[in-house]
Computed example of a mutant assay.
Amino acid sequence: MYDPTRLAALVAVSEAGSITRAAERLGYTAPALSQQLAKLEREAGTVLLVRHHRGARLTAAGELLVARARRVLDELDRARHELAQLSGLSGGRLRIGTFPSAGIHLLPPALSAFRRAHPDVELSVAEFEPPAGVSAVADGAVDLALTHTYEPADPEPLPRSVRAEVLLVEELVLVTAPGHALSAGTDRLPLTGLAGQPLISMAPHHPRRRGVEAALAAAGAAPAVVMETPGYAVVCALASAGLGVAVVPEMVARMASTPVGVRRLEPSTLRRTISVVHRAEETDAAAGTLRALLRGAFGRTGGGVGAV
């Protein structure tokens, strides 16, 4: 019998296009994910992936197993929902905190699935710019919250009453006006390639992003337009209009409402980690069920830079 964790790993690689990117999204190291895939290949008795210099692609056997794996994983999610219903999840209230990009792109599918399974649970959503959502959970203002951290950055300890579960690790990528020379290549752009480029910056009043922009400044990127909002939509619009270049999370680049050029950076150590935080002594069935849905939604979030 196939291990669902390994099946989810194969699905993630098929969607991310590489073991490294899939590992980052699942919160694993690349060697650990490779070990899981090797075990799955032994279970299957055949080669499922072919590695190449740009990532990995599925073999015919891998394609077949991924199609079946998606059905299995969806059935397991459905079983969790139905078991929650049997446990009496037929009322009450669930309060969720989120930050803007997750609230727009990632939370709605999970909440939609939750509502279909548990229509009698009252839902409310509040917006918190990280790390305010962590405090809201600790203070009891919400039951769980989506939050993020950036790398490089100084670590921020969680309150003792709160636990965090990593849902997604994504790279930060370069966004430019369409046709910009820096977005023309298919290989990774060294950070030194940003030297002298006007950088659209939000860091002066955003402590969590100062480490990232310090790394960009060290590479020679020069601040141009300084933003007074942590929102990324305007940043991408300004980059699209040719007012400078910007470095944003990959998900933001893929979902940009204005046309942008996109390119991965080297090294790939500029990252954003999205987590769900909850109280350490959580016993609420509704919160636990939504966390399971979020794990499934984030873990199978596919696409890459080429999808912009």
Rank of each mutant, 00 (worst) to 15 (best):
S90Q: 11
M227E: 09
S183H: 08
A132V: 14
D3C: 00
S18F: 04
G45M: 11
H206Y: 10
A246C: 13
L172T: 05
G288W: 00
L106Q: 04
V137Q: 08
T98V: 12
V276W: 01
E75D: 14
H105A: 09
E63T: 13
L123D: 02
T147D: 10
Q85H: 00
L73E: 02
L123E: 06
A164L: 03
H105V: 01
R210N: 00
R210D: 00
R68N: 09
L144H: 02
L294W: 01
P190V: 07
A292Y: 02
S18V: 07
G196T: 08
L73W: 02
L107R: 05
G185E: 13
G17C: 11
D154K: 13
R163C: 07
A44I: 06
G185H: 12
S34R: 15
R116H: 11
A297T: 09
G220E: 03
M251F: 02
L168V: 03
M255A: 13
A286N: 08
P223V: 11
T269C: 12
L238S: 11
V50N: 12
L33C: 10
G306K: 10
E250W: 03
A218F: 04
L294N: 06
L265M: 09
L89W: 04
T229I: 12
L168K: 02
R42E: 13
R70P: 06
T147M: 07
A126Y: 07
P100K: 05
R80I: 04
D154Q: 14
A221F: 06
E75W: 06
R71C: 01
T5S: 15
L58C: 14
L83T: 00
T29F: 09
R116I: 00
G211C: 02
R295C: 01
A177T: 14
A184P: 06
R25Q: 06
P230E: 07
Q36P: 10
P249G: 11
V72S: 06
L64F: 11
S18G: 12
E156D: 13
A138Q: 12
T283Y: 02
C236Q: 13
R68P: 01
E75T: 08
A69Y: 08
L49R: 06
T59V: 15
R300E: 06
H52R: 13
A110Y: 02
R71V: 07
V234Q: 15
L58Q: 13
A44T: 10
L40I: 08
V137C: 08
E43N: 13
P259E: 15
I19E: 09
V245Q: 03
L49Q: 07
E213S: 10
L194G: 01
T20N: 11
A280Y: 05
V166P: 10
G55R: 08
P267W: 00
A9Y: 04
A60C: 10
P152W: 08
H118W: 03
T269N: 12
L89K: 05
E282C: 13
R264G: 15
A222C: 00
A153P: 09
R95T: 03
G17D: 07
G88T: 01
R272A: 15
E151I: 03
R300A: 03
T289V: 01
E15G: 06
G302S: 02
S90I: 03
G296E: 03
G288F: 02
L290D: 02
T289I: 04
F128K: 08
